[in-house]
């Protein structure tokens, strides 16, 4: 699903150039449930932005679903994002003056799906996440967990190949965090590739593969079977 090889990215700030990703190689197969971890400055946000086609890279190659993502213009990038990727953010990023259903339907709006049809689909997705009764509430009237579930519904509605979640539980208490993780797990069980960026070990431990970044390269990859080991190690750290 995702194939990255020798990826370089640096940010130029005035006269200084900050080399963030230093030749990263990464492969994520279809249906994987991956978490990306790393201390701040390790390049995990940069990687996520590149994966989400929100940012460009300097060197190397990035294939998404067999397609080379490189030097896309803004319109192409927007369309590819809309088609392939569902985003979930730490701060939900719902549009405040739109109700839950309208927020969920927004990606379909950019696919030029008719209003009636997309609202129907949005309701369906909200129902799946147990929010049918809240469909006509504004985000300000929802709790944090509900907001994140609306955001998940929005990420799913365009039926993307991968879900990119940036600290999806960062703004939630632990109970709701686990709820949200359960939902993501369920989504993964249905065959979607889910990639989350997190710094919480117990959240990462709920995924099937952990990629730890350090200084712009992959430090280690911990696979499913070794997770218990990882948990134990974290606990002793």
């Amino acid at each position: 699903m995702i194939q990255i090889s020798n990826l370089h990215k640096s940010y130029v700030m005035g006269n200084n150039s900050l080399h963030v990703l230093k030749g990263m190689d990464l492969q994520i197969e279809e249906g994987e449930f991956v978490s990306i971890m790393g201390s701040s400055g390790s390049g995990k946000s940069t990687l996520l932005n590149i994966l989400g086609i929100l940012d460009d890279y300097d060197q190397g190659t990035y294939y998404l679903g067999g397609k080379l993502i490189q030097g896309l213009n803004e319109t192409r990038a927007a369309m590819t994002r809309n088609e392939m990727i569902g985003f979930i953010f730490q701060s939900f990023n719902l549009i405040s003056f739109k109700n839950a259903a309208e927020n969920v339907a927004l990606p379909l709006y950019y696919q030029k799906v008719s209003r009636k049809k997309r609202n129907l689909i949005a309701l369906e997705y909200l129902d799946r996440l147990g929010l049918k009764e809240w469909a006509h509430h504004l985000p300000s009237e929802l709790s944090g967990g509900q907001k994140q579930r609306v955001a998940i519904a929005r990420a799913l509605i365009s039926q993307p190949k991968i879900i990119l979640a940036d600290e999806p539980t960062g703004a939630l208490d632990s109970t709701t965090s686990f709820e949200v993780m359960d939902i993501l797990k369920e989504i993964n069980d249905q065959g979607k590739t889910v990639i989350i960026v997190t710094h919480e070990h117990d959240i990462a431990a709920m995924t099937k593969k952990i990629i730890r970044l350090k200084d712009g390269v992959i430090e280690e990859v911990i696979k499913n079977g070794e997770l218990q080991l990882f948990k134990d190690r974290v606990r002793t750290e």
Partner: peptide
């Protein structure tokens, strides 16, 4: 920004 992430073209 949100709209663009969700696929709004320029």
């Amino acid at each position: 920004g949100i709209r663009k992430a969700l696929g709004a073209t320029p």
